Amino acid sequence: MGDYQGTLQPGARVHDTPYVPAEPGLVHWGRLPRRGDAPVLAVDPGAELTVDTVSHEGLLPDQGGDPLAFFGGHGVAPEDVLEDAIAIAATRTRDASDGPHVVTGPIEVRGARPGDLLAITLLDATPRVPYGVISNRHGRGALPGEMPAGPEDVSVFTPIAPDADGVWHGRLPLTPDGERSVSFPLAPFLGIMGVATDTDERAHSVPPGPHGGNIDIRHLTAGATLHLPVQVDGALAYVGDPHFAQGNGEVALTALEASLRVRIRLDVMDATEAAREFGELAGPLAADATHLMPTGMDEDLDEAMRACVRQAIALLGARYGMAPHLAYAYLSAATDFEISQVVDLVTGVHARIRRADFEGVR
Rank of each mutant, 00 (worst) to 15 (best):
H227A: 03
R310H: 11
E201L: 14
F71A: 02
P185K: 00
A222P: 05
T290C: 08
V346S: 06
T335H: 03
G247P: 10
T197N: 06
A112M: 04
Y330W: 10
M147N: 09
G58R: 03
T50S: 13
Q246A: 15
G132M: 02
P294Q: 09
S135F: 09
A307D: 12
H291W: 07
D270W: 11
P67E: 02
R113W: 08
A161S: 15
T199E: 13
H74D: 05
T347N: 14
V27W: 13
A187P: 07
P151D: 15
P159I: 12
H204N: 15
V27H: 13
A222T: 10
V361K: 11
A235F: 02
R202A: 08
M293S: 12
L186C: 05
H219V: 14
T121K: 13
F189P: 06
V43S: 05
S183R: 13
M293N: 06
P78E: 05
R354P: 15
H219A: 15
T7C: 02
A149M: 15
H211W: 12
A96E: 12
L316Y: 04
S205V: 07
H28I: 00
D95I: 03
G170A: 05
L326C: 04
L281V: 06
A149L: 15
T290I: 09
T7M: 00
P162C: 00
Q9G: 01
D116A: 01
A38L: 12
R31P: 11
S155N: 15
R34Q: 07
S97I: 10
H350G: 05
Q311K: 08
V346R: 13
G64W: 03
G30Q: 01
G150H: 11
D344R: 15
P173M: 07
E257L: 07
G150N: 11
I107P: 04
L220W: 09
D200N: 08
L260A: 03
P61R: 06
A142W: 10
D216C: 14
V109T: 00
G213M: 10
F184Q: 01
A125W: 11
D124S: 14
G296D: 11
I160T: 15
Q231A: 15
A327N: 01
G223W: 10
R113F: 08
L331N: 12
L220A: 05
W29V: 11
L117N: 11
D44H: 07
G194W: 10
F244N: 05
V230C: 07
G72K: 01
L253F: 15
E179W: 13
Q5K: 11
P162Y: 03
R34A: 07
T272P: 00
D16H: 10
D153R: 01
L8I: 14
R180M: 14
R265P: 02
E108S: 05
E273F: 06
D98Y: 12
V76F: 02
G64D: 01
P159Y: 12
